[in-house]
Design a protein around this nucleic acid. Structure first.
Lengths: 114, 114
DNA sequence: TGCATATATAAGCATATGCTTATATTATAA
DNA sequence: TTATAATATAAGCATATGCTTATATATGCA
């Protein structure tokens, strides 16, 4: 498992994106699976356009992937991204967001379409 | 070695500071020792006020410490900071900046006052 | 087809950011 | 004490950021 160095510009660009509470929470939410936009809206208690705009930044940078499933668009971590190792290390040091998703599920608001 | 979780707001705040090429390079430069402002100015090829302003942000957040030695003020990593574990992990994944300091030394511009 | 739902995009705006130039502060040295 | 060097701070400005509201696009369903 050879460690590849991530150049400083690339690292800084990803860190800048992760350096926002909303986006860092989004990354935490999908650290163990995918979520759709309406789930983020519910958990984050933010407007849909605002959430979409954060997702676009993450997607443009390649940190997340999107996949349409019917009327929903699901977002997930892009584990192939050059800076994914950094993201993973950060995720290991912040509290997981799973409980928030469980609460969604209990409220019947979790989208499952597999 | 129990891992303490770093809350998401705290993590995001530090990541935001690290998400800037200049500041990330500064952190890289002091990852193995202290540097004074004029060394940063030389290595980064930036104006002194601009460097000072970046250092102030890092210091205000507690990510770095400063120590005056005569006419110079030396900056170093604050290893006691709550988010230092994150910083350390990031540093492990970017190329070290030591070579830049060696070049300074060869040019006779390295400040040593111990 | 037509309507509802999910999502994206656009435009506008207030605030944050990072630089610049000018100046203040602190310490050393003559 | 005066001059110089190292650093900090202040003010100004252009650009970036993150929200809002309004609207567009795409899908599913009656």
């Amino acid at each position: 498992m050879e460690k590849t160095m991530i150049d400083i510009d690339t690292a800084a660009q990803s860190l800048k994106l992760l350096g926002d509470k909303t986006r860092l929470t989004i990354i935490g939410l999908i650290s163990e699976g995918e979520c759709c936009v309406c789930e983020f809206v519910e958990v984050l208690q933010m407007s849909q356009p605002s959430v979409s705009q954060h997702l676009r930044k993450l997607r443009d940078a390649g940190l997340v992937k999107e996949k349409r499933k019917g009327q929903w668009i699901f977002y997930s971590l892009n584990k192939d991204h050059e800076t994914y190792p950094i993201t993973k290390q950060i995720l290991a040091q912040i509290p997981d967001q799973i409980e928030k998703l469980r609460a969604l599920e209990r409220a019947g608001l979790r989208i499952q379409c597999d």
